[in-house]
Nucleic acid binder design. Structure first.
Lengths: 137, 137
DNA sequence: ATTAAATACCACTTGTATATAGTATATTAC
DNA sequence: GTAATATACTATATACAAGTGGTATTTAAT
């Protein structure tokens, strides 16, 4: 029940931006606010841009803003864009060929847990959250 | 939705042993069957012994066997013994101080997913699985 | 007692995700 | 043109999980 730092960061960035979805954010300001290292954040921003969630404006007064409506940005797609959801879809015992047809001992138990996760992440969009709270580090 | 290799291995070992819970298993045989590296498995066996799930018999004809009934061995306790369940209990956005009282934007969504996991792992024991299937690597 | 089979322990190496540094270049406001 | 902001690329450093090596110790068959 843990995402990688990479996915954590991607969600942290976009959920922060979603609080004021029309605004433009410089990489610098995001780095300072979200406590993510500069270069790493910039790399993620490139991934998120390529995936079409945000667009970048170069030059003075440049920055990042959403390229599409936040109610069309699904969490699973965010994770896919930075590292891939399949990373989180494996067998709980680590078996290569574990499936409904060829299950490991814990398969039927595990898929319920995993499905709760995938279902949530495939249905929730950035518009489904409560951004009134202040994030504290 | 992924456990570390360490937890994966611990569950893989004990679920394999649970298929024939009265038997004694040598480290060697477990290594060969379960495709876990020798030294790593032995280290995990030590952890699992210290936690009281299994007992070891040294010397010729030695090996490992369960130290308690498998219906008293809870999955969450297994993970605790090798690395700690708290590793899987963090905030989805990686915030240090995220709680019901001081939640991040995704908190209320995430705890449902996380609770499905913890509930399952805190209630299921090694006796709750179907060991008829053959594990394939 | 000897020997073989096993576990236990300490230190070290490897691998991978994460993080940083540096350089070059493009774009835009002023 | 200058400054501020962005992308792109390459190389390297760090941290931690995973895996290995070597030796000590325990036990039981013989």
């Amino acid at each position: 029940m843990r995402l990688s730092k990479t996915s954590e960061y991607a969600l942290r960035i976009l959920s922060f931006m979603a609080k004021e979805p029309e605004q433009k954010y410089s990489a610098k300001s995001l780095v300072e606010t979200l406590k993510i290292s500069d270069k790493y954040l910039r790399r993620l921003m490139t991934d998120l841009s390529k995936a079409g969630f945000i667009k970048s404006t170069r030059g003075r007064e440049g920055g990042y803003s959403f390229a599409k409506k936040i109610n069309n940005i699904v969490l699973a797609d965010i994770i896919d864009s930075v590292e891939g959801m399949d990373k989180y879809m494996g067998c709980v015992l680590g078996f290569d060929k574990c499936s409904d047809e060829n299950p490991c001992a814990m398969h039927s138990t595990w898929i319920h847990v995993r499905e709760k996760f995938t279902e949530t992440f495939e249905h929730k969009t950035l518009a489904d959250f409560n951004y009134s709270e202040i994030h504290k580090f």
